[in-house]
Design a protein around this nucleic acid. Structure first.
Lengths: 159, 159
DNA sequence: GAGTGTTTTGGAATAATATTGCTAAAATAA
DNA sequence: TTATTTTAGCAATATTATTCCAAAACACTC
């Protein structure tokens, strides 16, 4: 949060958030610039750290990943040791897409898990997640329908 | 879920999930192929629909987006009309990163909201979210620390 | 309001990379 | 083994990114 962005920078970020496979020429057209200054801005945004990285998103349904679970996890004690062990474990599980430590009375962590089916989820839950020391409460909700899935961040406040 | 993938395809997908800015040559090196067959496989994966799209991820902290909220939303009645109005609205809010209809006794929707600060969240909640007809219950948890944020899907089951 | 320094742009030349067609090799099946 | 199919690798071509330099826009001073 240091460099100031003008309208063109914000539009570049908006376009790239939606589609990073744009060529520099297409991007330049869309933001109303010629290729060279456009590329220079993109590089500057990468240098500045505003742009984190570029990734490819795959389709779950095409990969046989039919079950997504949202898991609320409570810990028995809130000690640094408990947390660090849990977090290390969670990071090593490819089934875990996201894990967030949150405020709230109900739970400590919100975890999103993607697996093939309910049987695999059962195995993961009992074989992996609940085996982590300190995990005292687990409550699962299952995805019925994805209404919105958006990797974009809001940029309206910059303009 | 139709085409069969061999080990090389899976490795290509794994690499691209992590970093889509790889050049085809680099990718070919990593998976042990020469550039042309590698590119052909990538194109085939795009054609097949397994690859959804490529996006650029930005850093929240660098954009002054200091508050992430996980919101549990309950609806008064479970009618198609209630749902479609809610979902249309939610899709129009840039602050909403994801919205999922889920099973569970506690709530109907899990929504992730990204804003600048608590004041902006307050405005969004009272001015937008709770104004949608049918929204009867709202419970917010706030992000304390992001432990894992991974756009990759697990592919281990394919091998 | 003209002049000066700074920043940003656009165009052209160059370099890197993607893309395609073709041939050979490898894998598969009979 | 042999025929058939699939896949890889090479080389030529096309596309795209990158760099450099002169011109334009902008801000600031006097």
């Amino acid at each position: 949060m240091k460099l100031d962005l003008d309208r063109i920078d914000v539009r570049i970020l908006q376009e790239l958030q939606q589609d990073s496979s744009l060529t520099n020429q297409e991007l330049a057209d869309r933001v109303g610039l010629s290729p060279s200054p456009c590329l220079r801005r993109v590089k500057a945004l990468e240098e500045s750290g505003i742009i984190d990285r570029k990734v490819t998103l795959l389709k779950r349904s095409e990969l046989g990943l039919k079950l997504t679970a949202f898991v609320q996890i409570s810990m028995d004690r809130h000690t640094p040791d408990r947390f660090s062990v849990f977090e290390e474990k969670v990071n090593s599980f490819p089934e875990v897409r996201s894990c967030n430590l949150v405020t709230g009375q109900n739970c400590d962590y919100l975890v999103e898990v993607v697996v093939e089916d309910m049987e695999k989820y059962h195995d993961f839950l009992l074989g992996q997640l609940t085996r982590i020391p300190g995990v005292s409460g687990v409550q699962s909700s299952f995805l019925l329908r994805s209404v919105k899935e958006n990797t974009s961040l809001p940029l309206g406040h910059l303009m």
